[in-house]
């Protein structure tokens, strides 16, 4: 079996046996959405989708940091580093594992968002959901790159987010918000924003794999 698939399978098996990452992340996203629902009274803000993306970004990075920290604390990262696989395969295996977990988490967040904010997308909710799933690819790539560099350091769980958020905010998240907002306002920006989102994802996945390989 391809080592990337082996790593992905392991990542999912370890998480689904305990649900130690997904459940707290889903609860955290519920808290974030609830807090924002009650604290933001400006209807212009509520009618747009930034709240959805902020929730996906913060809890998604928390989930990735959790899985990376787990690997470091148990020193199973040593086992992975001793395997006769390239560093880019190791990066992609872990990033795709995180991506699947983020897809599950985003599905929960998306449903909560639709319920709490009364489906601002109308008939386009399915397309908005697909856009969120596409955005998760970039978050998983940057999150994993940040986690593998930062988690071995003291306070690494915090540094991961500090490193990843500025990169993601002005790229994946901005493009994602433009995409989903254009579905709400029915503007013509959707295709450009979606193309940009795919482009950012491609840069982060290939860039992450390349950086992992040369940093060995």
């Amino acid at each position: 079996m391809n080592p990337i698939l082996v790593l992905l399978k392991k990542e999912l098996k370890v998480e689904f046996r305990t649900l130690q990452g997904i459940v707290p992340a889903a609860l955290m996203s519920f808290m974030i959405l609830m807090s924002l629902k009650f604290s933001i009274m400006d209807s212009v803000v509520i009618e747009k989708s930034g709240i959805l993306w902020v929730s996906v970004l913060l809890t998604g990075l928390g989930l990735i940091t959790h899985t990376a920290t787990r690997e470091i604390e148990r020193r199973t990262i040593e086992t992975l580093k001793l395997a006769p696989i390239t560093r880019y395969q190791l990066f992609l295996g872990r990033a795709f594992g995180s991506m699947i977990l983020l897809w599950i988490l985003s599905t929960i967040i998306f449903i909560l968002f639709l319920v709490l904010f009364e489906n601002v997308f109308g008939d386009e909710w399915m397309l908005a959901y697909v856009v969120v799933l596409v955005g998760c690819i970039g978050i998983a790539a940057v999150g994993n790159l940040a986690a593998s560099s930062m988690t071995p350091m003291y306070g690494g769980w915090m540094l991961t987010s500090l490193f990843a958020i500025p990169i993601l905010l002005f790229t994946v998240i901005e493009a994602g918000i433009k995409c989903t907002d254009s579905l709400i306002t029915d503007s013509s920006d959707f295709q450009i924003a979606l193309t940009l989102l795919f482009l950012y994802n491609m840069v982060f996945v290939t860039g992450g794999a390349w950086l992992s390989e040369i940093s060995d």
Binding site: K10, K13, V14, R17, T18, R74, R75, T76, E78, T79
Partner: peptide, 12 residues
């Protein structure tokens, strides 16, 4: 390689 304290996945 066998580490002094071999790493493993407790969920597996």
């Amino acid at each position: 390689f066998l580490s002094h304290n071999p790493p493993f996945y407790p969920e597996l």
